[in-house]
């Protein structure tokens, strides 16, 4: 689930759901208590717009293992070696 929302910090303002370019987040206004749901996690682009624009700093990003960044230590350590 890419965006992780910290319930203790989130004030359910809905800013993240408004600006998400992929419509991943959803503010359920009809629930008895307003509820913020990561509704379409596999449609996340991991762009961090929600994280950056959250006024309460309540969002962090989890990068799925599918998006693995392959890294390798060169044997001799440097580009010109």
């Amino acid at each position: 689930m890419p965006p992780i929302i910290n319930d203790k910090k989130c004030v359910k303002c809905g800013c993240c759901a408004e600006i998400c370019p992929l419509d991943v987040l959803y503010l359920d206004k009809k629930a008895p208590e307003k509820k913020l749901v990561v509704r379409y996690p596999d449609e996340c682009w991991h762009c961090r717009a929600c994280e950056k624009d959250c006024p309460k700093g309540a969002i962090t990003m989890r990068y799925p293992l599918s998006h693995y960044m392959l890294h390798y230590k060169p044997e001799k350590g440097g580009a010109s070696q």
């Binding site: 961090r48 990068y63 998006h67 230590k73």
Partner: peptide, 23 residues
């Protein structure tokens, strides 16, 4: 550039770009 997901990812996973190359 708006691609600091790369920064966040490398920091979360402890990838040191001064020592390791990214494929």
């Amino acid at each position: 550039e708006g691609i600091d997901s790369i920064t966040d990812y490398t920091e979360q996973r402890g990838i040191d770009l001064s020592k390791e190359m990214v494929e």
